[in-house]
Design a protein around this nucleic acid. Structure first.
Lengths: 215, 215
DNA sequence: CAAAATTAATCAAACGATTGATTAAGTGTA
DNA sequence: TACACTTAATCAATCGTTTGATTAATTTTG
């Protein structure tokens, strides 16, 4: 049936996304993926042509869901730069820290030196998000809300880098935080609000010109 | 001769470090490493027991040099917590941003979920360094220099995460910064001092209780 | 000191296991 | 029948590792 066919492909992509994220491109064998998905190994090649084709299918499926996230925030004229940045932080913590296995996948493949064609595609898509955040901060500087000598480029590195650190190194950040961050309950009730509060305070202390420094 | 023997092992470690960094643990085959190093394949097992042993040898060689550095800073009684943190930042920027291929290697392997024994060892060694930084910041809080409600765990995530972001995603951070960060000259003359200044201002604004907020 | 015995270092070859991919023989549906 | 789907079996290639033999260096022995 047509619907089952689509569901099966989607299921394979779901599993492949997780296995690729856990084991990396080289570490994830086609047998592991097909086994985990409960399908015959040859199905991967039948549907996606090759292992690389499967990887690209996993990647491209995610593209659209990430693209519109920030653009909605940025086009809202009723908020100033700081409020927009706050909303960015909230959205990133909520959506990306929670569903992290794809982010790990991306970061790992980008950090490789020798996979050119694939890396370029990923970079291009990541830059869309980066550029939206950059626009917000430039707006903050131009409107006089943020310090003019603020290093916007490095603030971006901090914003995404802090998030990546927590997401990409869960064992390490679990030790630092004193809890297993893969515990759904802890992440939802404690980690998420904690990261939101922290990021806002950190960026506010550095970026915003006049703010209450007592608390 | 004794000296040649040591030099050969060091040479293998040098080559292995680069190959691992470029291709990842799974991507780097023992044949590639031994071929690149100009030694027989069996020498890797002879010297290091296994591929994993070689990887750990590469890893520990790098991490030990930085551990002693951190401990020296930490045990220096003539500096307060903020000065120590400044020295940490300087050293991190100087030593880790410069020699970055190893950092990429580490982050890529740690972000994998399913390689228990190897990952655990890496985590264990990394935690030693993290703990030293944590000690410094706790000292800052206890001495009344830092805000008591500062989220130390997440500051660590920011410190290491910002650095990792720049190092691990050079294509992306190059676009953000407007220069190719792999350009040795730009990195030495502009990026390094810029990151140092930024990290100090960022952490000072967030951590230190009373500071000149005008500049 | 010199011959013998021991150890360390190095090599080509091959090991069994696993990789991604393909084949040919089916299955069920329309 | 014709078609999309699914399977087990199999492919050559590559993986990390081990082997047995050979050479170089060191130590022991007479």
């Amino acid at each position: 049936m047509e619907k089952d066919k689509i569901d099966k492909k989607e299921h394979i992509l779901d599993v492949a996304e997780k296995v690729f994220a856990d084991l990396g491109y080289d570490g994830a064998s086609t047998r592991t993926i097909s086994g985990e998905a409960g399908v015959n190994m040859a199905m991967l090649n039948y549907y996606f042509g090759s292992k690389e084709g499967l990887f690209l299918a996993v990647f491209e499926r995610k593209i659209n869901s990430f693209r519109t996230l920030l653009q909605n925030i940025n086009s809202d004229g009723s908020m100033n730069a700081w409020d927009k940045l706050n909303k960015c932080i909230d959205n990133y913590v909520e959506r990306i820290i929670a569903n992290n296995c794809f982010q790990k996948l991306i970061n790992r493949e980008v950090s490789m030196n020798k996979r050119g064609d694939l890396t370029d595609k990923i970079i291009e898509i990541l830059m869309v998000n980066v550029y939206e955040v950059k626009r917000i901060m430039e707006e903050g500087v131009n409107s006089g809300l943020f310090h003019t000598d603020a290093d916007i480029a490095l603030v971006i590195a901090t914003l995404f880098g802090t998030k990546n650190y927590i997401v990409n190194m869960p064992q390490l950040s679990s030790l630092i935080l004193g809890h297993d961050i893969r515990d759904e309950k802890f992440m939802e009730n404690e980690l998420k609000p904690r990261v939101k509060t922290y990021m806002k305070r950190l960026l506010k202390a550095y970026l915003v010109k006049e703010h209450d420094n007592s608390k």
